[in-house]
Design a protein around this nucleic acid. Structure first.
Lengths: 212, 212
DNA sequence: TCAAAAGTGTTAATAGTACACCCATGA
DNA sequence: TCATGGGTGTACTATTAACACTTTTGA
């Protein structure tokens, strides 16, 4: 039938960089690798591709397994294919990044899989090439945030402009002028003020916004 | 040793979208698939990853095999992993795009591998998902051309501004105002005028430029 | 009364866009 | 002499960047 038999086959994994936003900081979900090689080391969320599913579907399955979430924003980032990237056996890893709203995250799964959220700016050393993966994801996010409503995936339904600004600052890694930021936001038709006022975050109260 | 044995393995291929610039048109190198499935259909340049090389190295090897070229500009584009994308067997394909100077291309290899250059704007139907791959590559190129000196890879060492403008227009798929284009180029420090004059392309003669 | 976050405009600089004519030359 | 591609400047518009004070209110 095919002329493929002469060619080698490879383990193919998917690693997911799951971003969330909590306490005004951009966070990544990590856990301790449950098996060798690297058992106990910190690792991104990952798994192996199955024969009956597309690579995109693998990523969705893995995300769901670790967060309980379905149909979230998820993008393929890149494929990491160095020969020795996994010290155990040759594994080619296709990396995705996902943006989730931590409020929707199933915290029970956190215990089962020993996952934890860590601040991206204080990321510990992860196994293999996982730190490179996160670095690349951050670069891509910085480029995307200007054009795409990334925030809608990371924030609760209603949010203050201060929180939104903090999110932008976390992703970009820079500080933003408040007036310029608010003007830019007010020009985006996909972000709109609700009449509601949030009294949690300040004495005065701040208008709550939402994504359309 | 590892807990991987329970997981399936996959054929992993690399497909290369090799762009060149000839006759004022952006071109892609294609050939007829030499084996089944899809034998005889038009196809991008590709091959299978080997066990002793990284995926990046596979791409370099395949590029060299079909063009004779080494160390050219090459970027990973994306990985295509639909279950049925290859009607023969499951193959996960990692796609790269390369920019080459057609003048350096080894035309003898063209006969050996039955390759041909085709205009990207008149791309025939290719096998499998190869047309999707090219479409994606074009999108990425359009985004990159504003910031990166893409032209340096596609043009001969010395070139006229008219040729450079034609290249930009091919990549962007739009026409550009000549005066605005020339002003923008003159502000880029990586493109500089040589004193030389090209007398081939016009009666009057045009200044030759080069990338620094 | 004061600390803490919310909210609010103007100006300057830069980048991008639209637009039309003369130049030099070989055939 | 004329057809062909080479070369040039200005005005308008949009976008981005810089910058500081007043408001509200709960503790």
């Amino acid at each position: 039938m095919t002329a493929y038999k002469q060619h080698p086959k490879f383990y193919v994994s998917v690693d997911c960089i799951i971003f969330g936003f909590k306490d005004g900081r951009l966070q990544v979900l990590i856990h301790q690798r449950p098996y060798n090689p690297g058992k106990g080391e910190l690792s991104l969320i990952g798994g192996f591709v199955r024969t009956d599913e597309s690579v995109d579907a693998s990523a969705q399955r893995i995300l769901k397994k670790f967060t309980g979430l379905d149909s979230v924003y998820m993008q393929q980032l890149a494929t990491f294919g160095e020969v020795e990237r996994d010290p155990g056996e040759r594994v080619i890893s296709i990396v995705y990044y996902a943006l989730i709203n931590i409020d929707n995250y199933d915290t029970q799964l956190s215990d089962i899989h020993h996952t934890q959220w860590v601040d991206v700016d204080q990321l510990p050393t992860l196994c293999f090439d996982h730190n490179d993966m996160v670095q690349k994801a951050r670069r891509v996010m910085s480029e995307n945030i200007k054009n795409k409503p990334i925030g809608s995936k990371l924030l609760p339904q209603y949010f203050t402009l201060s929180l939104l600004q903090t999110l932008y600052e976390s992703i970009l890694g820079t500080s933003i002028d408040k007036r310029n930021f608010r003007r830019a936001i007010s020009e985006k038709e996909y972000i709109q003020a609700t009449g509601m006022i949030d009294k949690e975050s300040s004495r005065r109260g701040a208008t709550l916004y939402r994504f359309k």
